[in-house]
């Protein structure tokens, strides 16, 4: 597997995070204004789905679960974030965005998640 077309540029407006599936691998495309980033769909901290929990503004991605942040231009973590984001190489050709996807990027310790999904009771706590 190599460069794969993910989406059209117009599908990811500035400051948007959009999730796509490439040959069964979910990735997020982020438009941070001066470029695009491609990364796995979950936060490396608590596995929050970044399409829902992520806020992208001023080139900074913030996960609202614990306010971990990453600078999209440099790819580096900032503030209280303790783990790096993993990135797929991404490029724009014409009006399309391509990502270099060999296999799903996984965070350390995330490769054998054996827990079944549970009903989320968080919203209904007394």
């Amino acid at each position: 597997m190599s460069w794969k077309k993910v989406c059209a540029v117009a599908e990811v407006p500035e400051n948007a995070l959009e999730k796509f599936e490439i040959d069964g691998i979910e990735i997020i495309i982020a438009n941070y204004g001066s470029g695009f980033r491609a990364f796995p769909p979950r936060c490396p901290h608590m596995e929050e789905p970044l399409c829902d929990s992520g806020v992208l503004f001023d080139g900074m991605l913030t996960c609202t679960k614990h306010l971990w942040q990453w600078d999209m231009a440099t790819g580096e973590r900032t503030g209280i974030a303790e783990k790096e984001l993993l990135f797929y190489d991404v490029k724009q050709e014409g009006e399309d965005i391509y990502a270099h996807v060999e296999q799903a990027l996984v965070y350390e310790d995330d490769d054998d998640d054996e827990e079944e999904e549970d009903d989320d009771d968080f919203f209904n706590a007394d």
Binding site: V55, F57, D58, T62, T64, L67, G79, F122, F123
Partner: peptide, 23 residues
């Protein structure tokens, strides 16, 4: 408050350039 309120408020504050240490 409930998570949708907190998450919506965080987004609003970040876009207003309130830094995370003040949220």
């Amino acid at each position: 408050g409930p998570p949708p309120l907190v998450n919506g408020s965080i987004g609003m504050l970040l876009r207003a350039r309130v830094t995370t240490d003040n949220i």
